[in-house]
């Protein structure tokens, strides 16, 4: 465990927990894409198939349980909670899961470390994580409005991506066997999509400030 990895895990954890706590507290999920949240729940469910078969560390197991629990809780809130689901921008959040899930599944069947169910699911989860933000990006472009909730969530996710790239570079030079193309390429694609997200975020933020300036 290096400092970049820990910082990446912590910002990733905070992004999910901040979102869950805010939805729970303010009973609103305005601006948040349910499609993206469902894709993340699917990402964790397919990546952590090893949770009960391969023990790595107490830290690893607890983190996996928290990610699974919190991501499915967010989906539950947005779909089932009577107040939260009223604030959901359903008409705007129209991205189809299918268009992301199917190509990722096909790619995982072709590009994997070993052709076993667990390995294919693991590769699938990495490809899907890379593009799972797209429905959120589309929703953001449509509503052209980012509140603090969405802003903090995206900022923390972006920090997680950046720290993980530093972690891979660090591990590449310190651990002789650490070569992992599937993780790196999908991680890089994901980070580039976040850079795009940040671009829209700062643009919207800038425009909002301009709008509020006195004439």
């Amino acid at each position: 465990m290096n400092i970049f990895r820990l910082a990446g895990d912590m910002t990733h954890l905070m992004s999910v927990l901040v979102l869950l706590l805010k939805i729970h507290t303010i009973k609103s999920c305005a601006g948040i894409s349910l499609k993206t949240q469902e894709l993340y729940a699917l990402v964790f469910a397919t990546r952590y198939l090893d949770i009960f078969t391969d023990f790595i560390s107490v830290y690893n197991t607890i983190m996996k349980l928290i990610f699974l629990g919190s991501s499915f809780s967010i989906v539950w809130y947005m779909r089932r909670h009577k107040l939260v689901r009223r604030s959901y921008d359903k008409e705007q959040d129209t991205f189809r899961h299918f268009f992301l899930v199917l190509p990722c599944l096909l790619l995982a069947l072709v590009m994997n470390e070993k052709f076993t169910f667990k390995e294919v699911m693991w590769a699938f989860s990495l490809y899907l994580e890379a593009v799972a933000i797209l429905p959120q990006l589309v929703l953001l472009q449509r509503t052209k409005n980012i509140d603090n909730l969405t802003g903090q969530y995206v900022f923390l996710l972006g920090a997680y991506r950046a720290f993980y790239i530093f972690n891979w570079i660090y591990r590449y030079f310190t651990e002789p066997h650490y070569v992992h193309w599937i993780t790196w390429i999908s991680g890089l694609v994901q980070t580039l999509l976040y850079a795009d997200f940040f671009y829209y975020y700062f643009n919207s933020w800038k425009n909002n400030v301009k709008l509020h300036l006195p004439a």
Partner: peptide, 10 residues
């Protein structure tokens, strides 16, 4: 680091 260390990431 062993080859197994790869999947210790979240």
């Amino acid at each position: 680091g062993s080859p197994d260390s790869v999947k210790d990431e979240l």
